Computed example of a mutant assay.
Amino acid sequence: MSTEDQDIIIELKGIHKRYLLKQALTGIDLRIRRGSIVGLLGPNGSGKSTLLKLIAGMIYPTSGSIRVNGREPDVRNKSQIAYLPEIDNLYGWMTVTETLNFISGFYADWQADKAAEMLQTMELEGKQKVRSLSKGMRARLKLIAALSRKVPLVLLDEPFSGIDPSSRAKIIRSILSEFQSDEQTIVLSTHSVKESEPMFDDVVFLQNGWIKKFDSAENLRAAYGCSLENLWEKVYA
């Protein structure tokens, strides 16, 4: 394996994904660098969630190949991936502390000290019932659950969806403060381009299941002379 290949944590070749009559992804070729934060951008229905689920090994491609850390996604890979879905899968009757304790039981790589630290950063009280939390607070709790694991790959599907600006700012600050580029790679899908832009090393623009643009955030800004938020408007005009 070359040094260049060792620097790649995710590699997709010729990925197609079809659901009955709907083609979700068409001919996706993508190589994601180890130790980067990658923005996965696109309108609803562009294939972002499908792509993340494929990488996580939750679903399988209709055709094409996927390699995560050098092998096809399987049970062993899942232990190396923290996946935060867009849907809210928390139990309302649990407290915040009970929720984190429950989740920790599934993962040998759980970092209790990190979870406790992030509770303070995210301004959540351990005794609060999940059902009493606002949507933004629930989003922060889900993020704690994802980032408290010591894994090389973190997949975040719309972590800012429908939450207020102050919560978005807290989540972004927490992601940046907890990110360790020598140990971790983050792939994050979002519609909140303006707030998220400073995080991104590389950016993927998806449209109708195929990659319209993929480059470093720096190269894209230089090539088009505008922010990623403005580029979004040009790409999807």
Rank of each mutant, 00 (worst) to 15 (best):
L153C: 06
L153M: 06
V154P: 09
V154A: 10
L155T: 01
L155I: 01
L156K: 03
E158A: 04
P159M: 02
S161C: 10
S161E: 15
S161G: 09
S161K: 11
S161Q: 13
S161W: 13
S161H: 13
S161L: 13
G162Y: 08
G162T: 09
I163K: 02
I163M: 04
I163P: 04
I163D: 05
D164T: 02
D164L: 06
P165A: 04
S166E: 14
S166K: 15
S167H: 13
S167M: 14
R168Y: 07
A169T: 10
A169L: 10
K170Y: 03
I171R: 04
I171D: 04
I171C: 11
I171N: 02
I172C: 00
I172M: 15
I172N: 14
S174F: 15
S174K: 07
S174N: 14
L176E: 15
L176M: 15
S177T: 14
S177W: 07
S177H: 12
E178P: 00
E178T: 09
E178K: 13
F179P: 03
Q180I: 12
S181Q: 15
S181N: 10
D182S: 12
D182E: 14
D182Y: 03
E183D: 10
Q184I: 02
Q184A: 05
T185P: 11
T185H: 08
T185I: 08
V187I: 14
L188H: 07
S189Y: 12
S189P: 03
H191I: 04
S192I: 13
S192R: 07
V193I: 14
V193G: 10
V193P: 06
K194I: 00
K194T: 14
E195V: 01
E195Q: 04
E195S: 02
S196D: 00
S196H: 08
E197Q: 10
E197W: 03
P198D: 08
P198H: 06
P198G: 05
M199N: 05
D201C: 00
D201A: 01
D202F: 07
D202T: 13
D202C: 09
